[in-house]
Design a binder for these strands. Structure first.
Length: 667
DNA sequence: AGAGTGAACCTTTTT
DNA sequence: GGTTCACTCT
């Protein structure tokens, strides 16, 4: 603990009452959590597996695990470090008999849930005039407030809310009949179980002797309920948060939970960490100046002993392409100047579609990059197919999964057959898979169609039986063989390359499943699918991490990370703040998003905006962000007058490529 | 039944 | 500028 300051040490040693650590950006909060965990183990003699630390993203969980490995060494028993959703899943799976679900339940991702809402809207004859995603959104916001349909009170004057409520009730029913949960249920269901059942509650309270929550400002009401149920005013809790980094309000995160904590935990101790170890003085000064424009309950100012460093630079580009090229050139230039690795650079963007431009610019210059966000591995059609096959085998009630793969590859069950199958299932009150063997239904079909449907149903059933006796990876490869998926991909792809790429994806999926089985030999198919659904793309980057690369990432995904050189692209009105954020509250959240971006930078920060930008194929003029005016003028270096390397358009690709080559040769 | 073609939509941010 | 979805043609 030699490298820690007195406040940090205090936070680590404080275990006798619930603790809130208000930690400014870059104040070493991860390090506090990591050290606290080893302190609890070595000094307080709590068994590692009785400690749970909750993070919000898998990436944060992974980083935390690595940090703890360093402080703790390789002890065999490990503390549980996971996201809220993974913890919820663990509890739900363990207490499944007390829940509304049956074992093998599916976890629906946003594609599934929006699809279900769309179907329900179609039944209400409201498709076309109302965007399903908005309805799904409203439902999710009710769920994050822990409200069941019967508890929601809507203003009768607001027909949209009334419609959403009607859909919500049906949506809930649908999910129950599918034996499926959505992301929100992964929090709601455990809370329900633990508050209704004393035995389970006591079991989990003793299972978690000490609870730590990172990024606490991001919790929503349902998540807070889970925390409260698990701790209930006991002393065994540390939460770490920063209200200035609350950027998930749109997802139901409520920074009010920080204040609520003081009311619910009367013995709560509050420790502030304000010393920043990350950024240069200029960067901190800019960050503080910006965030001062937001109202604060507790004023907080991060400071540092680091020198002032480079001024902030502004890039003013003529078009969005120009912006991407200037930033890419600047990265090359700085690499030559400072000999910094690719990994020291990050381009931060507000929304995913900005990424494509930078991807291209870096590709042209042969700069390796990793693009986070955007198209996930799990969005590829071939991966969705595989996962849906595994889902229907693990959970025969999962109509959603069944419908996706029913005719992939083609097995003579076309749209008409699907339609009558769905109608038959509804009429009989059966799942679709059950309907495939219902003779009353089959008699209504032409013999040929009936034959195809029966064959499919029997095949899935036989796979299910086999899957009970073998490892999930074997089930996956068996089913891929059975359907001749490789051939199907080959015949369906545009070209050779396409089918190769898709096959590679499938093989990669298979190897993950194998890894999961290796890690936990008792894992079943449903466990594999759940893990894959919640893991998302983070583990994938893990596999490819070996190469040193420039990060292109959204501001939201960048939270918790740091880079020597940060470029924030699209520092414009309409992008940041985003054009959809109009109310004062929303503008304040946008300001926090910008604050998060600025505080990611260690040494060098560049803000760029473009004077024009194409939107839906139309060129539109843009204005620099209002946030730019809120930054301290004396710390900013504007492009005019200064011979910034990127303002010189004559620095062509060839020159830079040559410089790079000579640099490479010197090494 | 399935492939191919245009119109309409669209862009926050994520578990 | 890119995608999805409905409609039409084979």
């Amino acid at each position: 603990m030699q490298n820690l300051n007195p406040q940090q040490i205090k936070a680590i040693r404080h275990t006798k009452s619930p603790l809130l650590v208000l930690a400014g950006a870059g104040s070493g909060k991860t390090s506090v959590i990591a050290h606290k965990i080893s302190y609890l183990i070595t000094k307080e003699h709590i068994r590692p597996k009785k400690i749970t630390a909750i993070t919000f993203t898998n990436r944060a969980a992974k980083e935390m695990r690595e940090r703890i490995k360093k402080t703790l060494g390789g002890s065999k028993e490990k503390p549980r470090i996971c996201t809220f959703h993974t913890l919820g899943l663990t509890i739900l799976r363990a207490e499944i008999t007390l829940s509304d679900y049956r074992s093998g339940f599916s976890i629906l991702d946003s594609n599934d849930t929006v699809g279900i809402v769309t179907e329900l809207l179609r039944k209400e004859k409201r498709i076309g005039d109302i965007a399903p995603i908005l309805v799904q959104y409203r439902i999710s916001s009710w769920k994050s407030l822990f409200l069941l349909p019967e508890e929601v009170i809507v203003d009768k004057e607001r027909p949209f809310d009334a419609l959403c409520l009607a859909v919500y009730a049906n949506y809930r029913e649908t999910l129950l009949t599918y034996n499926a949960v959505d992301f929100d249920d992964l929090i709601m269901a455990p809370v329900k179980i633990l508050s209704e059942n004393n035995v389970a509650r006591e079991k989990w309270r003793s299972e978690i002797e000490y609870l730590l929550v990172d990024e606490y400002q991001d919790t929503n009401t349902a998540q807070y309920k889970l925390v409260r149920t698990l701790t209930n005013g006991r002393q065994n809790m540390t939460v770490v948060g920063d209200d200035d980094q609350s950027i998930y309000g749109w997802r139901g995160a409520d920074p009010e939970n920080l204040n609520q904590l003081q009311k619910d935990y009367p013995t709560l101790e509050v420790i502030k960490l304000e010393q920043n170890y990350r950024s240069s003085g200029s960067i901190l000064k800019a960050a503080n100046a910006l965030i001062e424009n937001n109202p604060h309950d507790y004023p907080k100012k991060i400071w540092s002993e680091n020198g002032f460093g480079d001024p902030l630079r502004i890039i003013s580009a003529s078009t969005e392409h120009d912006e991407a090229e200037r930033i890419a050139n600047d990265i090359l230039h700085r690499q030559l100047l400072k000999r910094e690795p690719n990994g020291a650079f990050a381009i931060l963007i507000r929304s995913n579609h900005q990424g494509r431009l930078f991807e291209r610019a870096l590709l042209e210059r042969n700069i390796p990059y990793t693009l986070s966000g955007g198209q996930s591995f799990f969005d590829y059609a071939e991966i969705k197919d595989c996962i849906c096959y595994m889902r229907i085998i693990a959970n025969p009630l999962d109509n959603n999964a069944l419908l996706r793969i029913l005719n992939v590859p083609r097995r003579g069950i076309g749209t008409q057959s699907v339609k009558s199958l769905v109608e038959g299932a509804t009429k009989l009150g059966l799942s679709i898979l059950e309907t495939t063997e219902n003779t009353d239904f089959l008699d209504t079909l032409s013999p040929n169609i009936a034959k195809n449907i029966v064959f499919f149903g029997r095949w899935i059933k036989s796979l299910r039986e086999k899957s009970l006796a073998c490892d999930p990876d074997v089930t996956l490869s068996t089913l891929l063989d059975d359907i001749g998926y490789e051939d199907w991909l080959a015949t369906n792809a545009e070209d050779e390359k396409e089918s190769e790429r898709r096959n590679k994806n499938v093989q990669e999926l298979l190897s993950w499943v194998q890894q999961l089985v290796k890690k936990d030999t008792s894992i079943d198919l449903s466990g594999v699918v759940s893990s894959l659904t919640l893991f998302d793309i983070i583990e994938r980057q893990d596999n490819e991490k070996n190469t040193d690369s420039v990060s292109i990432t959204t501001l939201h995904a960048a939270k918790g990370l740091e880079y020597s050189n940060v470029y924030i692209a699209g520092f414009e009105e309409g992008i940041m703040p985003h054009r959809n954020s109009t109310t004062e509250i929303e503008i304040q959240e946008e300001r926090r998003v910008a604050y998060v971006g600025i505080t990611r930078a260690k040494k060098n920060l560049t803000l760029s905006y473009s004077r024009t930008r194409k939107r839906y194929g139309q060129i539109e003029p843009c204005e620099p962000s209002r946030f730019l005016e809120e930054l301290p003028e004396e710390e900013i270096q504007w492009p005019s007058g200064n011979s910034s390397p990127t303002s010189d358009k004559k620095v062509g690709l060839e020159t830079i490529a040559q410089l790079r080559m000579s640099l490479g040769n010197q090494k």
